[in-house]
Design a protein around this nucleic acid. Structure first.
Lengths: 158, 158
DNA sequence: GTTTGAAATTTCAAGCCTAAACTAAAATTC
DNA sequence: GAATTTTAGTTTAGGCTTGAAATTTCAAAC
């Protein structure tokens, strides 16, 4: 009738990991939701569009469709649609690739560059304010932990 | 021409916060993507369906549509569709609420409970393995940091 | 009791997302 | 150089997501 354990403890770490995962999901989701809200409210755009424009902004020569989908880790067909809409709004262009008639390069228009520059500035500030609860030490230790996490996952999932 | 600063440094913290945000997004996204993959591969289901079933599993009496959408923080119309599909698969039921002819309660069927129990066990193990890169100290410090983060956000966004 | 306003849910339009099928154009192999 | 395979991209079907409109019912005020 004592409190002695009958079997090796099944690692409460497992429960702690699940709880941390839920917290991680919650925190990330809240920040992301707020960023989406503001992108919508301030610039009438979306996070996926912003992400594609961010990728294009770093590549003045433009990026092939497949390069965009690799960098953003989303499917190929997805990019087709998002670039369609950017083109339709005059923010991006599709350019044929000289040597390869299968390939297309997407590139920001001057208007697209201008619009993105504004959005990027605001975005950086928003993130700064939203994460203001974390000081320098937090940032450093969390960065290390997240690196451990992603490092482990890469092993876990081959 | 010296390296003297002309103005108060614009806080490199802001850049560090942006970089941390990207890391957070990446780590969370990778874990989430892997969980989705496995839910699909092992149980032919999706994360949203799993989340709804998890909410219902904690409420044997069932939950009103609006209660589900509040707990999961997704829109009302969204839940309609997900519950539709759960019902169609025989995992959940819609029950009329006696006192209020507007309201509906969703509840797991016995089959739904059974199916979910299996999924939940696997899910907990998956998370444990995916987060195995974090030890007890990591979990504790990260939990505290994430709480600071969400605490601050709640103030930031009213 | 009727009107008015609020609440619970569904429906709808639009966008995001994926996996799989499809098309067209290389690149390789024989 | 013709056949095969690979690669780039789009299309399609199905599901998730939201915000806004529409429905039905309830509650409150009158």
């Amino acid at each position: 009738m004592s409190a002695a354990r009958q079997s090796p403890v099944p690692a409460p770490l497992s429960k702690a990991r699940l709880r941390l995962w839920l917290r991680l999901l919650k925190a990330t989701g809240e920040v992301e939701a707020e960023l989406r809200r503001r992108l919508r409210a301030e610039f009438d755009t979306t996070l996926p569009r912003f992400d594609v424009m961010a990728a294009l902004a770093r590549a003045p020569e433009g990026l092939r469709m497949s390069e965009i989908s690799e960098r953003l880790r989303v499917s190929n067909g997805n990019i087709t649609g998002i670039v369609d809409r950017l083109v339709q709004e005059g923010l991006a262009l599709r350019v044929a690739v000289p040597g390869d008639r299968r390939a297309m390069v997407a590139r920001l228009t001057p208007k697209g560059q201008e619009v993105f520059a504004e959005q990027a500035t605001a975005h950086e500030q928003w993130v700064d304010h939203l994460l203001a609860g974390l000081d320098g030490d937090d940032l450093a230790s969390m960065a290390a932990q997240l690196d451990r996490l992603t490092g482990h996952i890469r092993k876990e999932c081959d």
